[in-house]
Each structure stands twice: as C-alpha cells, then as structure tokens.
C-alpha cells in the first residue's frame, strides 16, 4: 500500500484510537476515529446477516446506540437499506417529508433520539457483507467528497476488522501484532484474492465470509502475503481441504 494513500492514513487514525485505549484494534476504534475525523456526532457498527439475527456491535454514544437498536428492532432505516442494496445511504436531513414516509417509524424515532443527519455505509467486499457502519449528526449535514471517501475507507477497515476477529476461531495463533501487520498486504487490489476466496468456498465447503477468513488465517500463520497465497490457490499450486492442512504442489495442473 502506498504510505500516502487514503487507506493508509485512515489506518493510522484508527490505530491511534486503539493505542489511546490501550487495546487491540477493533471496530470501536473505527467508530471513534470516524467521529474525530468527520463532521458527525457519533458512530456505531451493527453486524448484519441475511440468514442470522443482526445485532449492534458497538457505538460511541447513547444516540448512536439508540439508532442501531431502533433500526434492528424496526427492520427499517438507512442501515437496513444500505445492507439490502449494498450501497451507501446518505441522509443529510431526516426532517423531510419524503424520508418520513419512507421510514415511517424510524425517521421520527431517530429525530426524537437527537439525530438529524444519518449516513449508513455497508461493510462489504463483493458478496462478503458482515455489517453496516452508521454515522449521525445532530444538525443537517452534507458529507463533502473527501469526507465521504474517508467514511468509505473507515467502512473498509471495519469490514476487515470484523472478519479478522474471526481468525482466532480458526485456531490460527493470533498475537497482538498480527492484526496490525495484516493490513500491510491489502494495498494494491488483486483479482486473485477474490477468485481464491470463491475457490475456497468449494474446497472447504464453507460460505464466502468464512472462505476469506480461512485464506487470511493461512497467510498469517505462514507469514506470507495474502496476494501470494491467493495466486497459489488460483494457479492450483495450493489446495485447501476441510479435514487437513492445506497442501502445496509444485506442479501447476
């Protein structure tokens, strides 16, 4: 990753929040860093799923907490729409009749709670979509081009953190350094990473989220770059199996 890139800058902001808290980097740090960097009053992340129950993961203040809970309880609101459509939902002012019709209950409840502008950014990488990042402001607010790009970069980082939190469940030895180290190899988009993730769903018989977690866990434990591991999977030099360790073959098939 270029050290001057937006993603690199956002990662530093998030890591600083974690350092201040004296904890490992998590989605809460994305929220607090986003509040510090953007013209918003609070932020929250909810874990969302098409097949399982959705639940709030964290929030920076009580208004954010209420917004997360309201949407998941009511089943409507920007966060629900962002998840369903896979695109950001930007609401500069909740107090417009059109929105009050669209989110009949949520709009009034959110205004009551103290929110005026609400922005929902889906956490996603193709078909992988573990949740939504919600931001609110207590006055009508339009996010500028740069601010929106930053908000999306915060959402990208939150996506990885949510998935990385599951790496430990795979049995990979995660020490404190690994999560920080892991972001280094994400710069420079490689189509092979996405293709390899698709390939692993078949080789391991798992869903797409899990396939990505396992690919990253393997790269961690081997101390290799994710892109290199992915290239090996695509070229059939490396094969995963549900009941055994991945096997390397030197020959391309």
């Amino acid at each position: 990753m270029r050290s001057d890139s937006r993603s690199a800058r956002i990662q530093v902001l998030v890591a600083e929040q974690a350092a201040r808290r004296g904890a490992r980097v998590g989605v809460l740090d994305v929220c607090t860093a986003a509040v510090a960097a953007l013209p918003v009053g609070g932020a929250g992340v909810s874990a969302m799923s098409r097949t399982a129950a959705s639940h709030p993961l964290c929030s920076t203040d009580t208004i954010s907490e209420q917004l997360e809970e309201l949407q998941l309880t009511l089943g409507e609101g920007p966060c629900v729409d962002a998840f369903t459509h896979g695109s950001a939902v930007l609401t500069p002012d909740l107090r417009t009749s059109q929105l009050q019709d669209h989110w009949a209950v949520f709009a009034d409840a959110a205004l009551e709670a103290g929110a005026r502008a609400v922005f929902a950014l889906p956490l996603q990488m193709g078909a992988i979509s573990p949740g939504v990042l919600d931001l609110y402001a207590d006055v009508p607010t339009v996010l500028g081009t740069e601010e929106l790009a930053d908000a999306m970069a915060f959402a990208d980082l939150a996506t990885l953190l949510l998935l990385d939190a599951r790496i430990e469940e795979t049995g990979a030895p995660v020490d404190g350094v690994l999560l920080e180290r892991g972001f280094e190899d994400l710069g420079g988009y490689r189509a092979e990473i996405d293709q390899a993730t698709g390939i692993l769903t078949v080789q391991l018989g798992v869903g797409i989220d899990e396939a990505f977690v396992r690919l990253r866990a393997y790269a961690y434990t081997q101390g290799r770059r994710l892109a290199d591991v992915a290239a090996d999977v695509v070229a059939h030099r490396l094969r995963f199996s549900p009941d055994a360790e991945p096997t390397r073959t030197d020959e391309e098939t």
Binding site: S87, L90, M125, A127, A149, I199, T201, I208, V234
Partner: peptide, 25 residues
C-alpha cells in the same frame, strides 16, 4: 455522488471475481 457510484461499481467487480472462482473450481 460519484464516489458512491465508483464504490458500487468496484464492489460488483469483486463479486464477479468471487463467483468466477467458485464456478471455475
């Protein structure tokens, strides 16, 4: 918002790559 449109476009490409990988395998 252009930003958002680009993001949506890039994400749909990621989705296609994932599906290609699964179907190819």
């Amino acid at each position: 918002v252009l930003n958002e449109q680009l993001q949506t476009a890039l994400n749909s490409r990621v989705l296609i790559e994932q599906a290609k990988g699964k179907l190819a395998e």
